[in-house]
Computed example of a mutant assay.
Amino acid sequence: MADVDTIFAALAKSAFRQRFHLPAKEQAYLRDKGLDIVLSHARDFVRLRLAAAQPHNDGKQTPYRGHPVFIAQHATACCCRGCLAKWHGLPQSMALTDTQIAYVVAVLERWLRQEMR
């Protein structure tokens, strides 16, 4: 796994990743539900959609809108196993460990906190 500060420095150089920000609807959802609830959703999404060695529909499993976590996943390159391998150094053909899942959620949390400011 990569160092989170290093990842965010690299993401800052990507025009594609920098275009993602929380729209008003997702900001309101985050405010209304609270960060703890949204992070519990993040853990569920990562476990259900990304943790398998070969997730169903990999590369297309993360919508671009509809939940703050989905947008955070695209902004931080945590949207599919290919991006996790390329940007975060997580092996693509092995199921994610609990430690790796916690890392992905921590990356998502950092981005969500930045968007809350």
Rank of each mutant, 00 (worst) to 15 (best):
H21W: 06
R43T: 15
L30M: 13
D44L: 12
R110A: 03
Q27P: 02
T97F: 07
L35T: 03
P91A: 15
A10V: 08
F70A: 00
G59Q: 07
T99S: 14
R110Q: 10
K13Q: 15
G34P: 11
H88D: 07
C80F: 09
E109S: 04
F45V: 00
A106W: 02
L48V: 07
V4M: 13
D5Y: 05
G66F: 02
S93W: 09
T62I: 12
K86V: 10
F20H: 14
F45A: 02
F45L: 15
L30S: 12
S93F: 13
R117K: 11
I71P: 10
Q73P: 04
R19S: 15
S14G: 09
F45R: 00
V104P: 01
P23F: 03
Q92P: 00
H88M: 13
D44I: 06
Q92W: 07
R113N: 13
V104A: 07
T6I: 14
V38M: 04
T6W: 05
R31W: 08
D98C: 01
K13R: 14
L84Q: 14
L11W: 12
T62R: 04
T62P: 01
Q92M: 15
F8K: 01
T97R: 06
A10C: 07
M116K: 11
R47K: 14
L30P: 14
K33H: 14
V46A: 09
G82M: 11
Q61W: 00
H67Y: 07
P91I: 09
A77M: 15
V4K: 12
R47G: 09
A10S: 13
D44E: 12
Y103E: 10
Y29E: 12
V105F: 05
V107F: 08
E26T: 05
P68N: 05
K25G: 00
A15M: 03
R117A: 14
L48I: 06
K33F: 10
T62Y: 01
A77H: 08
R117T: 12
L96Y: 08
F16H: 09
H74G: 02
R17W: 02
D32R: 11
P63K: 00
K33R: 15
